[in-house]
Structures are given as C-alpha cells and as structure tokens.
Amino acid sequence: MKIKSNLAISESGFVFDPETGDSFTLNFTGKDILNQINQGISLNDIQKNILEKYDVESDSLEMNFYDFISMLKHFNILHENE
C-alpha cells in the first residue's frame, strides 16, 4: 500500500490532493493511521500500533480499519503497491 505522493497532510487533519484539487478532513485516529502509512509502515503493523496506543478491541478496530482503508482507496488517496 502506498499513499499518493505529494499529498499534503497538515497538523489540523486537513488533507490536500494537489493532483486533483480535492481536499479532505481527517479525525485524530484517521490522521494517525494516514501518517503511519506515509512512513511506510505495513497495514498489519499499523493495526498493532493502534491497538497498543488506543483503548479499542481488535475485532472492532479491524472492521473500522478495513472501512477506513476502503474509503482512502475510494478517494484515490491510497494505491496498491506498485
């Protein structure tokens, strides 16, 4: 998985896609995950990190995580590895 290059993620959770001109807002958890993807951490490891860091059950995280990733793909922010 790879985030579209040159995507701008700001501290406030504002995301700007300079290629399409679209902009997005992230909540805190969303920003955390996107930043980790950006650092090249694998999706599995990100899930582990989130489980350690936040008060959440692994079952519900997995579903939310999957949904979030599918939204990132839907918005063309995330691409399969190339």
Binding site: T25, T29, E52, Y54, F75
Partner: peptide, 20 residues
Amino acid sequence: EKLKYERPIINKINLGIPNK
C-alpha cells in the same frame, strides 16, 4: 494509559456545502 479510541474517518470537503 491508552488514548480514547475514535473510529478513523476521512471526509471529503464538499465545496460550497458547509460541513463543520
């Protein structure tokens, strides 16, 4: 202590349409 969890969300900002 673990942080309070919020389901991760990304919203597209609809131009012209107010959201927050």
